[in-house]
Structure formats: C-alpha cells, structure tokens
Computed example of a mutant assay.
Amino acid sequence: MRNLIITLFCICCLTLAYGFYLRYFTEDLVAGDRFLGLTILAVSFIVMPLFLYHRWKDRKVKDYMLDEDNIRRMREFNDSKESRKKPENQ
C-alpha cells in the first residue's frame, strides 16, 4: 500500500509539473489546464483517500473521541501536573 501511494504521488507530481510546463513554456493553455485539473482531481479523490485509509486502518476511533471517560482522564492528568509543579521562589 505504501509503495502504491508513493508511486501515485510521484506520478501526480510529474503530471503537475508537465501541466505547468505546457501552460507557461509552450503556451498551450488548454492542455496545460487539463493536466493541472486532472492532477488536482487525482490527488483529491485517489491519493489522499488512500493515504488516509493507510494511516488510520489500525487505529481505534474511540481513542480520539471526547467522551466522559476521556474528559475525566484529562482532568486527572492536569491535576497531577499541577500538584507536581514546584512552588515559585519568593
């Protein structure tokens, strides 16, 4: 999966560069705009969802949700940090 994402990303970078080349150096605006637009669509709808799936596939969503238990643990953690602070020198 990782190699596929890297390969697709590299291909998209190359087509993006080719689109800019067509647009600004050969002044073929229509073809350059098409390459740029298709590259943006490919990155948005193919590469980014694959990347997000790859990064989140083994994670628990519950760990990132703010529920009663997580709020309680955050408060306990903050209280323990405050109790460990050294008193300021007077």
Rank of each mutant, 00 (worst) to 15 (best):
residue 66 L to Q: 07
residue 89 N to D: 12
residue 71 I to E: 06
residue 47 V to G: 01
residue 29 L to K: 08
residue 4 L to K: 08
residue 57 K to D: 02
residue 90 Q to F: 11
residue 4 L to W: 07
residue 18 Y to N: 03
residue 39 T to W: 01
residue 14 L to Q: 06
residue 58 D to N: 14
residue 41 L to S: 12
residue 79 D to M: 06
residue 83 S to Y: 05
residue 46 I to Q: 02
residue 39 T to R: 01
residue 13 C to P: 00
residue 88 E to W: 10
residue 24 Y to N: 08
residue 71 I to H: 01
residue 56 W to D: 08
residue 72 R to D: 12
residue 32 G to Q: 01
residue 75 R to E: 13
residue 25 F to A: 04
residue 36 L to W: 02
residue 27 E to Q: 13
residue 76 E to V: 06
residue 17 A to V: 12
residue 65 M to L: 15
residue 59 R to N: 09
residue 55 R to C: 05
residue 14 L to P: 00
residue 6 I to P: 00
residue 35 F to D: 01
residue 11 I to G: 03
residue 61 V to F: 12
residue 68 E to N: 12
residue 7 T to L: 14
residue 42 A to Y: 09
residue 25 F to L: 10
residue 33 D to W: 09
residue 24 Y to M: 03
residue 86 K to L: 14
residue 73 R to E: 15
residue 56 W to P: 00
residue 7 T to H: 05
residue 14 L to E: 05
residue 87 P to C: 02
residue 33 D to F: 03
residue 5 I to P: 00
residue 3 N to H: 10
residue 86 K to H: 09
residue 41 L to D: 07
residue 45 F to N: 05
residue 4 L to N: 05
residue 66 L to P: 00
residue 13 C to A: 14
residue 49 P to T: 04
residue 57 K to R: 14
residue 33 D to Y: 07
residue 58 D to Q: 09
residue 31 A to H: 05
residue 71 I to K: 09
residue 37 G to I: 02
residue 61 V to L: 15
residue 27 E to P: 00
residue 63 D to A: 08
residue 33 D to T: 07
residue 5 I to A: 01
residue 78 N to S: 12
residue 71 I to W: 03
residue 84 R to A: 10
residue 22 L to R: 10
residue 48 M to H: 07
residue 70 N to R: 15
residue 75 R to D: 09
residue 17 A to E: 04
residue 68 E to T: 13
residue 86 K to F: 09
residue 76 E to L: 11
residue 36 L to S: 04
residue 88 E to Q: 12
residue 32 G to L: 01
residue 9 F to M: 08
residue 60 K to H: 10
residue 66 L to V: 15
residue 79 D to F: 04
residue 3 N to R: 08
residue 11 I to C: 08
residue 30 V to C: 02
residue 83 S to K: 15
residue 56 W to E: 08
residue 82 E to S: 11
residue 85 K to D: 07
residue 25 F to H: 09
residue 35 F to S: 04
residue 83 S to P: 00
residue 68 E to G: 13
residue 53 Y to G: 03
residue 57 K to Y: 02
residue 81 K to L: 15
